[in-house]
Design a protein around this nucleic acid. Sequence first.
DNA 1: AATGGACTGCACACCAGTGTGCAGTGGAGA
DNA 2: TCTCCACTGCACACTGGTGTGCAGTCCATT
Lengths: 199, 199
Amino acid sequence: MSTESSRARSMRETRDRILDVALDVLGENPDAGMGDIASAAGVVRRTVYDHFPSRLDLVRTLTERAVTEVTAVLTEVEASGAEADATWVAFIARLWPVAHRYRVLLALRRGEYGEAIHALLGPVDELLADLVKRGQDTDVFARHLPADTLSQVAYGVVFAIADSDLSNGTPGARAATITSLLMLGVPETRAIALVGAQP
Amino acid sequence: MSTESSRARSMRETRDRILDVALDVLGENPDAGMGDIASAAGVVRRTVYDHFPSRLDLVRTLTERAVTEVTAVLTEVEASGAEADATWVAFIARLWPVAHRYRVLLALRRGEYGEAIHALLGPVDELLADLVKRGQDTDVFARHLPADTLSQVAYGVVFAIADSDLSNGTPGARAATITSLLMLGVPETRAIALVGAQP
DNA sequence: AATGGACTGCACACCAGTGTGCAGTGGAGA
DNA sequence: TCTCCACTGCACACTGGTGTGCAGTCCATT
C-alpha cells in the first residue's frame, strides 16, 4: 500500500527538508526570509513557493507539526495517572529535544503571525493549564498564580533555557526541569528527587 | 539657570512625548513603524525624524533610558547591604512599574536591533548576575543554574508576568516576585514572608 | 523514445517601511 | 512688526521582502 513512486518520494523529501531547515533558520533568526530558508534547504526560492503558497502556510505547517508532537507527548504522560509533579517531569523530559527544535514558535508567537500561531497552540495551552490545575488541586503545585498563567510561564522558562543552551555551556534538560518545578512551587528537595528518579 | 525658553520647552516636550508614546506603541507591537509612533504622538512622521535621525536612534534612546532607571534602582537597593533574597524583593518591588513600561525591550532584544540593545543592557545583566551570585554564595539562592543564566531567566519571568498583566486580571507585582523567588530556589514559606514584609 | 512534472532561473509587480528634501505655516521672541 | 524655527505636508528614492509567471532543463516513469 505504501508504495510511493520515486518521484513522489523525492518531492516529499524536498518538502520535509524545507520544513526541517526552516525550523533551524527561523530558530536562529525569526525574521529570516523565504530566500534564506530556500538557500539553506539547497533549493531555489521559487521552489519553496511551489510547496507552500505563502510564508504563513509554511509557519502554520510548522506549528501544526509542533502541536501534534507536543500533544502526543502530553496525552501520553497524562495517561500514566501519576501525580501532577511527576507527570510534569516526565513531560519535560520527553519534550526537551522537541522544545529545542521548536523554540522559534515562542518568538513567532509575537508579531505578524502571532494570532494564527496562538490559535493553533490554544489546545496545547489548555492541556498544560489542566495539568497545572490538577497539581494545584492536589496541593503539589503552588497557587501564587492562576493555573493558566503559571503553566504558560513555566512552559516558557523551559523554552527559554533550551534557547540559552546554544551560547551557554549546556545547562541541559535537568536544570530546566528543576527550574520549572521550583516556580511551580515544588520544594527543592522534592524537585531534585523527582528529576533524580528520571534523569 | 534652568530658564528654558518656551520654544525650547515645547520642543523638549514633543521629544519626550514621542519617547513616551513609542514605549507604548512598541510595547503593543514591537514591529510598529515610525508612522504609527508619530500618529500616536499626535505628530507627523517627518517630525519624528527631526528628533531621531533613525529608528535605531529612537530605540537606543529608549534603551538608554531604561538602563539608567534600572541601574539606579539596582545600585540603590544593593546599597542597603541586606541579604540577597531581601535585596531581590526590594529590587522587583521598585522595578515593577518600570518593568511594565519597558517590557518591549525584551522583545526588541531579538531581531534587528538585538545586538545594539544587548550591548547597552550588558551592564545591567552583569549587576543582576552579581546579585544572584552573591545569593548563591551565601546559600540563599539555589545553584541548579549558573548565576548569569539564572538571573537572566528570573528577570525574564518578571517581565513576562508584567506582560500578561494586560490580558489577564492583574496577577501583579506580588505574584511575579514570589514566582521569581521560587525559581531562584527560595523556599515558598520564606518567599511569602519576604514579600509579606514589603507588599 | 516520448511525456510529465519537479525544479531552476529569470522576469516581473507590489507593498510597506525607511530616510531625505523642500516649500509652506503659524506662533513665540527680538 | 519682523524674524526665526518647530512643525506640517507633500514630494521623492531606496531597500528588502513577498508572491507570480513562464520558458527551460533534467530525469523518472511509461
